[in-house]
Design a protein around this nucleic acid. Sequence first.
DNA 1: ACAAAAGTGTTGGTGTTACACCCATGT
DNA 2: ACATGGGTGTAACACCAACACTTTTGT
Lengths: 233, 233
Amino acid sequence: MTQEKPEFDSLEEYDEEAFDRPSVTVDLIIFTVKDDDLKLLLKKRDSWPDEGKWALPGSFIEMDESLEDAAKRTLHEKTGLEDVYLEQLYTFGKPERDPRTRVITVGYYALVNYEEVRDVDELENIEWHSAYSLPELAFDHEEIADYSIERLRAKMEYSTAAYSFLPEKFTLSDFQDIYETVFDREFDRRNFRRKLKKKDIVEDTGEKTEGVSHRPAKLYRKGRELGEIVEIL
Amino acid sequence: MTQEKPEFDSLEEYDEEAFDRPSVTVDLIIFTVKDDDLKLLLKKRDSWPDEGKWALPGSFIEMDESLEDAAKRTLHEKTGLEDVYLEQLYTFGKPERDPRTRVITVGYYALVNYEEVRDVDELENIEWHSAYSLPELAFDHEEIADYSIERLRAKMEYSTAAYSFLPEKFTLSDFQDIYETVFDREFDRRNFRRKLKKKDIVEDTGEKTEGVSHRPAKLYRKGRELGEIVEIL
DNA sequence: ACAAAAGTGTTGGTGTTACACCCATGT
DNA sequence: ACATGGGTGTAACACCAACACTTTTGT
């Protein structure tokens, strides 16, 4: 606190003096939508501190990988997925956020299609939890999770990130259901559909759903790139 | 790369094994508007690497301070200011971004009123530079600066962050000039003013400018909190 | 025939854009 | 009197919110 504050320019001396360095991790908020519920993947902690509480999956940054690569690696370990929508959320670094040592964590959020995720039961102590009724979380992970929901909503208002939650072919109701789940409110069907079509967010495949006990719905595919900026709400 | 990848849960062992930890810094993008130009504060590097190039002011995180505190400390060192608009931008962590050692940097951007900044000439090798014609920057600071301009614009579209650039009392033209400078384009005066008034972004003080060689302008003050969310453009 | 979800248009109100002239002051 | 920037209203258009009935299929 009262020791010399090294200037950025003098990093060589800083190294020689071996000042303490913080640990740096990535933590992942892995979102999916399933059964009209927004869910995120949590891992139960098996040791001190916060043993038994649920935590966001995370790992340490390795010296030769970028932050995004670390996030992708962690995501792959937990879900078997690659090439999903992934975005840096925020960096959390209060000194007391981890009682063991100084840990700065870079949060990333990922949007995944539930059907494409490797069966999570293969992994010990990993489960999907509703974002709307989270258990008690370890460290400051509740703050991180809350913030990630805010950012997810902001992103989905003006981009096509929602494709991530859907299979290749989907109905307009599927699309709308995602929005109603994530925003936890209803939208007018006619107005919602009009916008999806006018802004070329969806593209007709010519196919229809089969085997449903009501009128079949047209199937659409994405009409823009994943994550492209378009006003949706 | 092929060594064991420690799981988050096993941090105690990780510590004992003394894996390398990255250095963590904050870098600041300190914006101001002066003479119809968007400017940011740069420091000339006086040693390897990139000696002679300009760099964003930054410093190392200390073990007992939060990221935001580190950013405030750095801002104070360079400008003498406290309590300014300050927001985390993004965290940059490519392994090769600094040739000396692994450095992860958390970018923060600050918006300051030029008149309130301590005279920068007191400090060696620190200068304001136009964001629209930056010199060659050290490290990946050009990328950081570019991204910060994008984010500054996004923020100013829907919040009152622009108050930061203005004195307590200002004219509607002053406010508009800030926007025209930051967005590098013109806005219709009547439409712009209508919105500022209708959304209570400005509040009449009853005073007028004095000593100008044209019609005096009404003086306003901020009508909302700094950084409050309101659509402005 | 009934249940279930799909599909579809119009209207009134609101907000946005584009545009031109007079006013108050200092020199 | 001139130069300089300050101040103001309106019309056309685009967008948005609210609203209910018919269609297609499976059981």
